[in-house]
């Protein structure tokens, strides 16, 4: 059941400040989530998925060739849609339970 007048969105997004880190994040995430879509707005990239986005920072570090941790990831996370959860080595964004 939904509210009249409100169009329900199941989309989960992460807006990343464009640059080398963001490109590595997107490469890892697209490999793990083939249905995800990336839109390039110039100054930022919008990673969009109809399901949860699970960022494994070790995998991103592997892609970058250096250690990558939560503070480094949050440095480029400009915005998001969904419910975020920050753990020691992962960040996840999932649809808010309705």
């Amino acid at each position: 059941m939904t509210h009249a007048g409100l169009k329900v969105s199941h989309k989960v997004t992460a807006k990343l400040i464009n640059g080398g880190d963001a490109e590595a994040v997107v490469a890892v995430m697209l490999a793990a989530n083939p249905s995800a879509v990336v839109k390039d707005y110039g100054s930022y990239l919008s990673l969009e998925n109809e399901g949860p986005l699970f960022f494994n920072l070790a995998d991103i570090g592997e892609e970058l060739g250096r250690k990558y941790d939560v503070p480094a990831f949050l440095t480029i996370l400009a915005s998001y849609t969904g419910q975020i959860d920050v753990q020691d080595d992962t960040v996840s964004i999932a649809e808010i339970a309705g």
Partner: peptide
């Protein structure tokens, strides 16, 4: 779309 549909509606 993103705020009212993905946040508020929930």
């Amino acid at each position: 779309d993103e705020f009212f549909g993905g946040f508020y509606q929930k």
